[in-house]
């Protein structure tokens, strides 16, 4: 490695610069990141940006087409739905719910997955077998179906949908953590810590875990996008966010009867989902490229 040994600049600056060098090598990842920042800002300032209240029903303006079409009105940029609610405002507010769903799902599944994966990898033996067989069982059932079963048990609603989806995502994190734990466990620095007398807790969380983070971050990002998709799917099936909430999947579901007469009411939420997921996936790919060579070199 041709890293300089004497570095006067701040360490963080150096690390970030290196990260950015590899990340920005991919133009699409940067584009995805810019779009994603846009979505986050949109979610944060939804109340300021959106021209109307998302639930406000302008009965006289029901099913107004987008502004650039015949009969469109400039105040309803992307048209209105069957009850005269502004689609643009609903999509903006929907971004909040989608990002929230993504965050909750990733945080839940990541923390449970890392914990179980670490224990399984470190302890080995019967506990390892037990954890991994349970995870295999969860993985054997298609994810969305599994989530549907959990929601059916827990009852429909956005929160329950998120928990259900988090459960179906846990196995991938467990496997990833266990695999990295097993490789890290044989590294010399872990042996050195053991020789210093470190106990299992210290070895697992202080020595090993930080070195397993890079693949987990990548997997987390990619799960974020699928979580948005699955939340939308559950919403569409009526098992996720419930009707007045402007969740993107629910938007499509409640307007699905108008698919032919007022196609914009389903098209734009669909495009919103598509773009958000695409952007996150692009960022995830960029992250992987930026973090993986780093792993190999250190």
């Amino acid at each position: 490695m041709k890293n300089p040994t004497v570095v006067s600049k701040s360490l963080r600056v150096q690390q970030w610069r290196e990260f950015w060098f590899y990340f920005s090598a991919s133009k699409t990842a940067v584009a995805g990141l810019i779009f994603l920042i846009g979505v986050v800002l949109m979610a944060l300032f939804a109340d300021v940006i959106s021209p109307h209240e998302p639930a406000e029903q302008y009965r006289q303006f029901a099913k107004v087409p987008p502004a650039w079409k015949d009969g469109g009105q400039i105040q309803f940029l992307l048209g209105t739905d069957y009850a005269g609610r502004d689609m643009w405002s609903r999509i903006i507010h929907g971004s909040r719910l989608s990002l929230l769903a993504g965050c909750v799902v990733v945080v839940l599944s990541l923390s449970i997955g890392v914990l179980l994966g670490l224990v399984a990898g470190y302890r080995g033996g019967w506990l390892d077998s037990l954890i991994m067989r349970v995870m295999d069982t969860i993985m054997a059932v298609p994810g969305l179906l599994m989530a549907l079963v959990f929601v059916a048990i827990l009852g429909p609603g956005l929160l329950n949908a998120m928990v259900a989806i988090a459960i179906t995502y846990t196995p991938s994190f467990v496997r990833l953590t266990r695999a990295s734990t097993l490789t890290e466990l044989n590294r010399d620095y872990v042996t050195a810590s053991k020789m210093a007398g470190a106990r299992p807790m210290r070895l697992m969380f202080i020595s090993i875990l930080p070195n397993c983070m890079a693949p987990l971050i990548v997997q987390g990002t990619l799960s974020f996008s699928t979580a948005i998709l699955d939340t939308a799917a559950l919403g569409f099936l009526g098992m996720g966010a419930q009707a007045p909430m402007p969740e993107w999947g629910t938007l499509i579901a409640e307007n699905r009867d108008l698919m032919l007469s007022a196609p914009w009411t389903v098209t734009f939420p669909g495009i919103a989902i598509l773009l958000a997921v695409l952007a996150i996936n692009l960022v995830g790919d960029g992250l992987r490229d930026a973090l993986d060579p780093k792993l190999k070199r250190s």
Partner: peptide
């Protein structure tokens, strides 16, 4: 000493 790196 050591072999000079990129920055030194």
């Amino acid at each position: 000493g050591v072999v000079p790196g990129q920055l030194d």
